[in-house]
């Protein structure tokens, strides 16, 4: 008997993550590790993990990792990539990190067209701190700081940060995907592969927004959480390709 799904080379052997049952981080971590192996990038990989649930990603992922202050992932990624362009640099961030406290860093690293990849986990809530409203929370969504549902009159509207940066000339590849279904998970892997290849080809900034379940803070079971993504979240955040300027960039580069 032969094992079909071998343990990914760049995922630490036999670790159990601290993530809650059904959390999307585990799925995306595995995809990142698989792709680094398939694309032979693990040896020069440098991942910035955020302040958020994924702060401990270095316990699971088996390549070089640095922690970031809350929101500063793409600034650290910029510094590292500029200092050593041989590194394959990924900034792994959540929605509070990337689209609230780190908005300026996100916007400007994207606008500079830094040759880095951003993996953006959007679960519409602050996970690690216990389920407070995020900029991405849906209208009407109950969180610890919107106990009667997010009211745009006082709480503002869901922020579509990936759509914003996709407009920038410096952003080469932007796609929104979801890990709420097996098909979505396959698309996620494909999108992150494209993003990774964009950096390998030296074509500039890429970002993949992953709609990802947070069953604990959504106060749903994991299966219902996946359904909520596919029935509610996708209405606000429509999955799909947001920009793909890879061919343009190739032509520019000649």
């Amino acid at each position: 008997m032969e094992l079909v799904n071998k343990w990914p080379k760049y995922y630490k052997q036999d670790v159990v993550t601290h993530y809650c049952p059904g959390c999307g981080h585990g799925i995306v971590h595995r995809i990142v590790a698989e792709l680094l192996e398939e694309m032979d990038l693990g040896k020069q990989a440098y991942l910035v993990c955020p302040a958020g649930c994924a702060v401990l990603a270095y316990r699971y992922l088996d390549f070089d990792i640095i922690e970031s202050a809350h929101g500063r992932g793409t600034a650290i990624a910029t510094g590292a990539k500029r200092a050593n362009p041989k590194l394959f640099v990924i900034s792994y961030q959540g929605d509070g990190d990337l689209s609230a406290i780190g908005t300026a860093e996100t916007i400007h690293s994207a606008n500079r067209g830094e040759n880095i990849c951003v993996v953006f986990i959007n679960n519409a809530v602050y996970g690690m701190t216990g389920g407070q409203m995020a900029p991405t929370s849906l209208i009407g969504q109950n969180t610890m700081t919107t106990p009667t549902g997010r009211n745009p009159e006082v709480d503002g509207y869901p922020l579509h940060i990936t759509d914003v940066v996709a407009q920038f000339p410096g952003v080469t590849y932007a796609e929104r995907v979801s890990v709420g279904t097996p098909a979505g998970i396959r698309k996620t892997k494909k999108a992150i592969r494209n993003a990774f290849q964009t950096q390998v080809d030296g074509l500039g900034y890429s970002i993949v927004e992953v709609l990802s379940p947070c069953p604990t803070n959504w106060k749903m079971d994991p299966v219902t959480s996946c359904k909520w993504i596919e029935e509610e979240m996708v209405k606000e955040y429509k999955p799909g390709l947001l920009t793909d300027k890879r061919e343009e960039r190739r032509k520019e580069k000649g």
């Binding site: 032969e2 343990w7 999307g24 595995r30």
Partner: peptide, 20 residues
């Protein structure tokens, strides 16, 4: 049938599928 979906949706790398 070895479709591998269970391994893809598992967030914890807890499933192994063997063939043959």
């Amino acid at each position: 049938v070895g479709c591998m979906i269970c391994t893809q949706v598992c967030p914890d790398l807890a499933i192994e599928v063997y063939s043959g």
